[in-house]
Amino acid sequence: MIEVNSISFRYREDWALQDISFRVEKGEFVGVIGPNGSGKTTLLKILYRLLSPQKGEILFELAPIKRMERADIAKRIAVVAQETHLLFPFSVLETVLMGRSPYLGQLMFESEKDLEIAKKAMEWTNILPFSERPMDELSGGERKRVFIARALAQEPEVFLLDEPTANLDIHHQIDFLDLILTLNRERGLTIVMASHDMNIASEFCDRLILLRGGRIYKMGTPEEVITKENIESVYGCEVWIDQNPISGMPRISLLKKGGH
């Protein structure tokens, strides 16, 4: 579905990403992990062409995204990013309806059909009961669900998630990730998620891409990527890795320096 062919990107002098190549198949749940500044967010931004790489190209179903219209990209790829601060708060419904924007073109107003699609997205994410409330009165977890609903209203094939669980408590983390997993399993949505939380990545993703200093250090299943050697060499700190006793996936424990 997405084919990344040896892309390199730099903001100014230094390369932020170098010679990155990978493919994401339809219906996959791919995690991008790596330390701060390793290029996770930059990579996601390149996938929906907020940034354009200086070298290499990205194909979306064999078509270069460089030549796609902005609105066409937004019809196929939805982004749930770290939150931006809301200046003049819109209501939940108004926010979800913004997801219909790429389909409206020059049209100024949403149709009944757009409203139906927005309602369905709100049902899915269980936010219909407070659709009239202003966004700034919601909790962090509720707001996250609104942004998923907005992304769903775009009727995309791919979800790009950037640190989706940052500043959510564990209850809301699980709620959010279960919702994403359901979308992935039941609706066949392709998911690419950048995350700091390697335990979450290990638990939920089919495949992981581990970045170090703008290059792919290791790519494969969680069992292949999350090993003591890989993590210690990329992050430069000691960790303990065993298996989650329920799921059997790799599990990371942090260790105090010199405490063992």
Binding site: Y48, A74, T84, L87, M98, G99, S101
Partner: peptide, 10 residues
């Protein structure tokens, strides 16, 4: 809600 947000929506 920001330029990136607008780009994400096409």
């Amino acid at each position: 809600s920001g330029e990136e947000n607008a780009v994400q929506l096409g």
